[in-house]
């Protein structure tokens, strides 16, 4: 049954979406602004995109962000999946409810607290702050998201499939790689993409644990914006928006496919 849109529905939707997306549209529009000034329209131009391409510090920050995002997401996916497996499969070990709760905790923890505690930890163990500390920090806070995503898939997983594989002569470890992993792969991939975007977006935690030499893209943008907005940053932000949109849409498509063979 499809109901016709009433005037109220239309208004609510228009204002709702406007509230969410008009600022972003303004950002994208101004990234194509030819004028040096932020609030004066000087005609359409892609010059900021071009000059962005020659801005070495920004490009370094971008490379850092991508590398940190990829690495931390990869490590977090590995450990997050293991955590999900342990929590779903081994239902009778001591302190399981505690561990389940602890997996969720980082999701609700204020980022400043996470950032500060990680900073203190790195300082106390004498780790040199920079690329690797940011990567590790991102791994710890994205891991729980992956554990949660994979966990929800594993709960619905039909374990007789594994029994059937073993019954047909497949040893347990091989069963995991030929049956279990391919079937939970979509949610593992979705978790990876989620972790990657989270890492790419993060300012707070990264600014706590990074060192003098290393800057990620969000930190760089934030710093520059404080010194005064430049159209170059608009262009860069628009590009990031594009990347994040692609990743999010991609991950939701993957999850949707994952939902299909559950029955």
């Amino acid at each position: 049954m499809t109901r016709r849109f009433t005037l109220f529905d239309t208004t609510a939707l228009t204002f709702g979406f406007a509230f969410l997306y008009v600022p972003l549209l303004v950002l994208i529009a101004y990234s194509f602004n030819d004028s040096q000034l932020l609030n004066v329209w000087g005609g359409f131009s892609t010059r900021w995109y071009v000059s962005l391409w020659h801005n070495a510090p920004l490009l370094t920050a971008l490379r850092n962000s991508l590398a940190i995002g990829f690495l931390s997401a990869a490590i977090a996916t590995f450990f997050g999946t293991l955590a999900a497996l342990a929590l779903v499969r081994y239902t009778r070990f001591w302190g399981r409810p505690l561990f389940t709760g602890m997996v969720y905790a980082p999701m609700v923890m204020p980022e400043v607290v996470t950032g500060l505690s990680l900073l203190l930890f790195f300082v106390s163990v004498g780790a040199e702050r920079g690329f690797w500390t940011v990567t590790l920090a991102h791994t710890t806070f994205t891991m729980c998201y992956i554990a949660v995503v994979v966990q929800s898939r594993l709960v619905a997983f039909d374990r007789t499939l594994e029994e059937a594989a073993q019954d047909l002569g497949c040893p347990p470890v091989r069963t995991f790689f030929t049956i279990t992993l391919p079937l939970i792969a979509p949610s593992v991939a979705a978790g990876f993409l989620l972790a990657f975007t989270l890492s790419l977006d993060d300012v707070v935690i990264a600014s706590f644990v990074t060192g003098p030499g290393t800057s990620t893209l969000p930190i760089e943008i934030f710093n520059r914006a404080r010194r005064g907005l430049s159209p170059e940053i608009n262009a860069l932000s628009s590009l990031m928006l594009l990347v994040v949109t692609v990743v999010v849409v991609g991950s939701s498509l993957v999850t949707k496919r994952a939902a299909l063979p559950t029955r």
């Binding site: 039909d158 007789t160 499939l161 029994e163 059937a164 594989a165 019954d167 047909l168 049956i179 391919p182 079937l183 063979p261």
Partner: peptide, 14 residues
């Protein structure tokens, strides 16, 4: 050396 046919059939969906 036994094989089982499961009640749910347990066919590998992939």
């Amino acid at each position: 050396p036994v094989n089982m046919m499961f009640q749910s059939y347990a066919l590998f969906p992939h």
